[in-house]
Amino acid sequence: MASASLTLTPPTHLARWRVQLSTLLYRRSTLTLFLLLAPPLLWFGVIYLGSLLALLAQAFYTFDDFTMAVSPELTLDNFRAIADPSNPLFGANIDIVLRTLGMASAVTLASALLAFPIAYYMARYVHGRWKGVWYIAVMLPMWASYIVKAYSWTVILAKGGIVYWLIGALGLNGVLEAILALPVIGGSSLSTSNLGRFLVFTYIWLPFMILPTQAALERVPPSLLQASSDLGATPAQTFRTVLLPLAFPGVVAGSIFTFSLTLGDYIIPTLVGPSGYFIGNMVYTMQGSIGNIPMAAAFTVVPIVIITVYLALAKRLGAFDAL
């Protein structure tokens, strides 16, 4: 057959339809992209966001306290109970929100402070095989069941537990008693104090702060730090004006994890620390024991709003300028 075009030799080791399919996908790159993206977008859009939106929509449904029935009559009552000071339920609800928010902030701050030096060391000083060892060491606690870890902390922190034993052996009983006598963070024992709860939360979520911080620090070229020093900046100035701004998006990413995971948790508040609900306990009780799905849904809006405000603030502070 006479042809003016290039003579192509199709690969003989492949079936004809496979060559034709490959050629079609190669020529129609938009089609290829569509085929690749359709399944994850369906999953993400319908199952992931769709169910979340369905949940949020139910926050506007009406719950009848007497019949315990949910009816699709739209109302703002659930949000009034959380956000309207004149509502009789406002006081108790805002306590729950503030309690959760305070703990999430403290855990996030402590995680960031603990994670940064570790992440910096991993990013700058650890190479080759030792890097793998460090990754495993950081993630190892996440391989164990979350419930087991939470329960074992109740034993660790209980009177007669290993922490009490260690503090006694070091002769620091007086110090611990003085700390537990403090308002807010104190309590009758470590396992029933806010301090104990804070320790467990920080333990559980720390890896989620270390890994994004480490990834962000790894992306900062060493030459930038050298350039800063070369131009006359002391190590402290280099940290403040170059390293921290460039690593900050990673810290913010980590803080979203530690912050939102603490905001949503209901198991650790049940096992460790004083009485009093967290947002997660409230949601669990509302939808589980009472069946008040609308109120539970309204409460799930709270962390979403808080994180949104937090990100807006972070953006305004320039946290994402280096992205």
């Binding site: 030459s223 930038l224 050298q226 350039a227 070369d230 131009l231 170059v242 701004p245 460039l246 280096a322």
Partner: peptide
């Protein structure tokens, strides 16, 4: 009292 022009320029991206 020396300054450097780096091979990759090392300009601060932020």
């Amino acid at each position: 009292d020396v300054n450097t022009v780096f091979q990759d320029y090392a300009l601060f991206p932020h």
